[in-house]
Write a protein that binds this DNA or RNA. Structure first.
Lengths: 193, 193, 193, 193
DNA sequence: AATGAATGAGAATTCATTCAT
DNA sequence: AATGAATGAATTCTCATTCAT
């Protein structure tokens, strides 16, 4: 693993452990097992490191999200895959969602840039929804309104697990997932089936 | 407004504006228009201030969430009220959700304490759901699984608005809200109606 | 003495002792017997401290230069006073000339600003020369050409003393001083006397 | 040009541009277009580099000062040559005087060593003055007192030009030069002429 | 109760120097 | 000989906290 990646991984670990509250270059250096000066060979300063970490995390998250995706899968299979990937992804790195939120506060990290970046990494998911809308398979709502009642439920549920409020249960999980799929279906279209 | 409240309000403002990144007692003192020393008359130290801020924000959020709640309202009316209150509450203080996440990282702020505190502030909502489950009006799922596909959609949608991805639209909003209500209804129960 | 002055004095001492080579805020703080943080209460940063030091030194030098000046003195008495003040001033703070040179290298310290400042502090001397030129008492040269062969000799001589090349000797000193006065006299004017 | 000379030249450039304030081995390496490690092949460390630079600058200055010097020239011609060489030398490398001053602050660079070195490089000029004194052509003053009212005026005038206070003018320049020559002549001796 | 100057530990950053290639 | 990545001590600067007024 390259020094750069080593440092980025260490940064995520430190941030997830201590938060910004105690995110120091010293801690990162120790966690990455490099000298402090080495960090500055790869990143101009703390701010730059955090910006790069932002991208790094989002890219990694996107990769995990689409793990197993094949164009040959049916729409429902694709949905199930992504919904479950998201659920497990949040659970496996429970602090990440918070990290992503926190990284919004890094100076010079602007929403529009982040959105552009997200557009690219989540393009496949956005396209999937847009096709559903265009083909009348899904309700004729705004894409992001559909999101909030379907895909986002996987994240909402995972958060309840993280908070210790909910024990994941395979059967019930499938029910939630299927309900979130059902809710966005266009009744008219499915009658045609 | 008491000096204490003045300081807590200023703290939220500073935190929402600069994040932890630049959350200093100096900034808080300036925003609250008091001397630094004065903060220490009301809060033992920075950590204590942040813990109190955590409670302060949650209490305020809870109050806003149940604004207009009356026991005489019907179940659906109660749901609509809370769903919409949550939606507008997130929109009116868009950084709050992140603040709440970030405050988890303050040392000596433990998940179990927070959960206990949340249990109290959101008791009414939890009870509302539990009654729905017990009376078979809602699906026989875990309370928090229900949450994730119903109430949580208001927050997911508000977040899309904050991200600039979605323009709130009264008609569509109601559709989302109603769909999130519909999805947790027990079909057997409603047939009885 | 105010803390600010304490710090400026200490800064000159440290700079004169170690040069920029080892001019650290730590050294200044120790020499001024204050905490490092205290320096930052009076000066925004190291650069600002050096800029203020520049002014401080120049003001002090100007005060010493004109010590004893009275409008009632004759032209020659005024010249002798300033020439000798300059000579002793350089000798009493032998590193100052170098400091002044070095301070030109502080970023954001620009020649035009310095000249404006010098114009004010040395105004009396410039006026004195200008009157000499206008009244035809002095040679009809450029003011600063006159300077270089008269007033500047006091500094050139003092530097030789500092370098250990020359032992000041009251009688000879007067000869140099008087020669430097003689050289700028306008022969035509003095014939009129 | 040898790598060593390349590095010394780059050192002067960097020093003249940024001062000690930002004189780093990194900057020198970039300016010299060599790798940092290469500097250490030619100079033991930064201090050694600066000491060598000191010599390098002084040797170069001495060479320029006596450029065109021939024993066959008359005393006045020699004086004019050196006076003007000095004047143009200061103007062509305006930061050098300050550099030389600043290099005094490099640790282990002692005044006596520097004087010894100067004695060698300026020997010709010192001898010239001493012969003038011995032959009664010049005033019977200390050598360095004579210096301050004659040769040093060329440097004083050049400094006024650097400061932007004076525009060099060929005719006037000669007047200043000649006046500085006239002032050190022994009237008794010249009557003999 | 309120103030804000003073403190100094700790964080970010720089940079001389080393050393494996 | 030449390179430049890696190091970590030293430096600048910040900021929580104290305390005399």
């Amino acid at each position: 693993m390259s020094k750069r990646t080593q440092i980025l991984n260490a940064s995520e670990t430190v941030l997830a452990t201590y938060g910004f509250y105690a995110f120091s270059m010293q801690h990162v250096a120790e966690a990455a097992e490099v000298a402090i000066g080495t960090i500055y060979r790869y990143f101009a300063n703390k701010e730059a490191l955090l910006c790069e970490l932002n991208k790094f995390i989002r890219e990694d998250a996107a990769a995990k999200l689409f793990n197993g995706w094949q164009d040959s899968l049916s729409a429902k299979e694709k949905y199930d895959l992504v919904w479950e990937n998201a659920f497990h992804c949040v659970l496996s790195t429970p602090k990440r969602l918070t990290l992503i939120e926190m990284l919004h506060f890094v100076p010079n990290m602007h929403q529009t840039e982040i959105n552009l970046f997200e557009d690219q990494t989540f393009k496949r998911l956005f396209d999937f929804y847009q096709q559903g809308i265009d083909s009348k398979r899904f309700l004729d709502w705004d894409l992001f309104a559909l999101f909030s009642v379907s895909f986002d439920t996987s994240i909402a549920l995972a958060k309840q697990v993280i908070r210790g409020r909910y024990e994941p249960n395979q059967t019930e999980l499938k029910k939630v997932r299927d309900a979130s799929w059902a809710i966005i279906q266009n009744p008219d279209f499915n009658q045609q089936d």
